[in-house]
Design a protein around this nucleic acid. Structure first.
Lengths: 112, 112
DNA sequence: GGTTGACCTGGAGCGCGCTCCAACTCCTAC
DNA sequence: GTAGGAGTTGGAGCGCGCTCCAGGTCAACC
């Protein structure tokens, strides 16, 4: 994760401004790092930034929002699973194409 | 797939200009549709447009480029498989988080 | 014959998620 | 003390993949 991305996340409110050392430099706590780690998992799985912000805001409001956050994660997990299924379905097309490549080198059209 | 996307694909050379009917409207052949279908699979699996263009250009050059195209598909398939693995790995984090949600509602930090 | 609606064109605009920049401050090493 | 390098700031820029728009043409239907 680049420094610029880190700053960007801070600017848009995805992460709280971390503590600073005596020289004014950012010093990330273990919790900061854990949260960042989790954020990167959400990003990797394709959650849009705006949704991550929403989640971050809920988190900021404390334990009373736990149910909503859990709900978001449940929905996101479903989306990720769907995405995996979609990719696997496309993989089949790719497999078929590769296996039978010689037969329709030029006529990409026939897929079944 | 939107009309605009279709035009866009034509403009950037992803698809050949299709035949036209008497009124000047585009009329896509079965081969056109097959190729489009395949293109959408490549897109869905995250292949960048520029790579799809490269593939389209190779395809345009005829059967002599079959080996290269097959190679591209092999590499892309590997990338897709890697992506699926990555998503599945993230799913585990998500699962863990959801399962143990109550225990660290506010301290998102602790992930293990 | 008029209206409706889909398609046509070239070009501009947009949302996303960074990424880069210039100009500055600070700590460290020599 | 000074050179270097990493960090800091606010803001601009960018690559991607569409998406939208205005103004026009055409075929079909009432």
């Amino acid at each position: 994760m680049s420094v610029d991305t880190l700053r960007y996340y801070e600017r848009i409110g995805l992460i709280d401004p971390p503590a600073r050392d005596s020289g004014g430099r950012r010093s990330y706590s273990e919790d900061d790092l854990g949260w960042l780690f989790f954020l990167t998992r959400l990003r990797t799985t394709g959650m849009p930034i705006r949704m991550m912000r929403e989640y971050a805001q809920l988190r900021h409001r404390g334990t009373t929002t736990a149910v909503q956050r859990k709900q978001m994660l449940l929905e996101h997990r479903a989306a990720v699973r769907a995405r995996i299924a979609e990719l696997q379905s496309c993989l089949e097309v790719l497999d078929y194409k590769i296996t039978h490549y010689e037969q329709f080198e030029h006529s990409e059209g026939i897929t079944a």
